[in-house]
Amino acid sequence: MDDKANSITILMADDDEDDRLMTKEAFDEAKLANELRFVEDGEELLDYLTHRNKYADSSTSPRPGLILLDLNMPRKDGREALREIKADPDLRQIPIVVLTTSKAEEDIYRSYDLGVNSFITKPVSFEGMVFVITTLAQYWFQIVRLPEDKK
């Protein structure tokens, strides 16, 4: 992986502390050098992206190259956050991958309808999680070309 790919920040929005820990461990296991940051709900996710409240200083909250989004979260859930991000002309280029426990048809349909880039059901095992993270990183940072950050 080249430096440019390594410098891409991944932002994960998930209210579940265990899942955040598991994802972090899976990241380490996959030996990814990217910075992985966490927010705990949709509200915080939008604060981060639009540099509001505690993320007002944009130098400490770099624009993510990929967002991992849980659907079921308190305050503002993933669906609402997804709709707002995809409606924002500044943010809608950021690829979003839904990573959720839901397998529900309507969640899958609604997510793609709102413009999500991928929908992944959280794997049951840690091994599965490592595989998903490795594959995601490979796909989004090596295979796919992402838009340049203009800022």
Binding site: D16, D18, M22, E25, T101, V124, S125, F126, E127
Partner: peptide
Amino acid sequence: SHDLQEPLRKVAAFGERLRM
């Protein structure tokens, strides 16, 4: 059944981590 699955997943996953 949905909500029961969530903690179960964790038990399985952390068990796996423990073993690894």
